[in-house]
Simulated scan of single mutants.
Amino acid sequence: MWPDSDQTQELLRGAQQGDSAAVGQLLDRHREALRQMVRLRLDRKLAQRVDASDVVQDVLLEASRRLTRYLDDPKMPFHLWLRHLAKDHMIDAHRKHRVAERRSVDREQPMHRLGTGDQSSLDLAAQLRDQELTPAAATIRRELQERFLAALDELDEDDREIMLMRHIEQLSNSEVAQALDLSQPAAGMRYVRALRRLRTVLGGS
């Protein structure tokens, strides 16, 4: 899901040398991945009031302001740094709109809750779609996708998050560990547990 790291590194070198065009390309090429990440994590009711593209625009503006500081001391890969900024903005968006729209936004709705019928789920299904499938095979794939989405919705927040990170964002175990501030063995164990729980849910559906 995230852009090619080699080209990202080339653009980062350009940005470090003061190339404003490289900065623009660097941020713009991460826009769509950020948008998908945000849309998959906005709860359904809040997503009716908060546009993921607006959140992403705010993230990219902050990234632009803080890029020099990041380049001086890059403690993590660029896409993980952007994810970190995006997570903070999503938390702020949920806090702001849950207070402002308390009557119309379900206060008990988990932040990462997915739904099989919402736009986030459609985005997820689109990523899993194979354009070369025959109509019959596409129908089977769609049914499997719907089962997967429904099962994902049954997992707790930590399990859903790591499944999204590994299977949708396609982050490696080391990247997940860094993003979640875990050791690699701990991240691996969390993923294995989440996978077992997902299989249990799928087996019972």
Results as ranks from 00 to 15, higher is better:
D4Q: 06
S5H: 02
Q7G: 08
Q7T: 10
Q9A: 09
Q9L: 10
L11Q: 04
L11W: 02
L12T: 00
R13G: 09
Q16E: 14
Q16V: 00
Q16N: 13
Q17S: 11
D19T: 07
S20V: 11
S20L: 14
A21W: 01
A21R: 08
A22V: 02
V23H: 11
L26I: 02
L27H: 08
L27W: 04
A33S: 13
L34P: 00
R35W: 12
Q36N: 06
Q36W: 11
Q36R: 13
L42P: 05
D43N: 09
Q48G: 08
R49L: 15
V50I: 05
D51M: 03
D51G: 01
D51C: 07
S53P: 00
D54G: 10
D54M: 06
V55S: 03
Q57T: 07
Q57H: 04
D58G: 14
D58N: 09
V59N: 05
V59E: 09
L60S: 07
L60F: 13
L61Q: 13
L61P: 05
L61N: 06
A63G: 13
A63R: 05
R66G: 03
Y70H: 11
L71W: 09
P74Q: 07
M76R: 15
M76Q: 10
F78P: 04
L80G: 06
W81F: 01
W81E: 02
H84G: 04
A86H: 07
I91S: 11
H94A: 14
H94K: 11
R95S: 03
R95W: 03
R98D: 05
V99C: 02
A100P: 05
R102Y: 09
S104L: 12
D106Q: 14
R107K: 14
P110H: 05
H112P: 00
R113E: 10
T116Q: 09
G117K: 14
D118H: 09
S120G: 15
S121A: 15
S121T: 14
L122A: 15
L124E: 06
Q127D: 02
Q127A: 06
L128K: 09
D130V: 03
Q131S: 06
T134K: 02
A136F: 08
A137E: 15
A137F: 00
I140S: 10
R142I: 01
Q145T: 02
E146L: 14
E146S: 13
L149F: 03
A151I: 01
L152G: 01
D153Q: 15
E154S: 14
L155T: 10
D156L: 10
E157C: 10
E157T: 13
D159A: 14
E161A: 11
M163A: 08
M165E: 12
H167G: 02
H167D: 07
E169W: 12
L171F: 06
S172I: 03
S174R: 15
E175C: 02
D181L: 06
D181Q: 14
L182T: 01
Q184V: 15
Q184Y: 00
P185Y: 07
A186D: 12
A187F: 08
A187W: 07
R190T: 06
Y191I: 07
V192Y: 08
A194W: 01
R196L: 09
R199D: 10
T200A: 14
T200P: 00
L202M: 10
L202F: 07
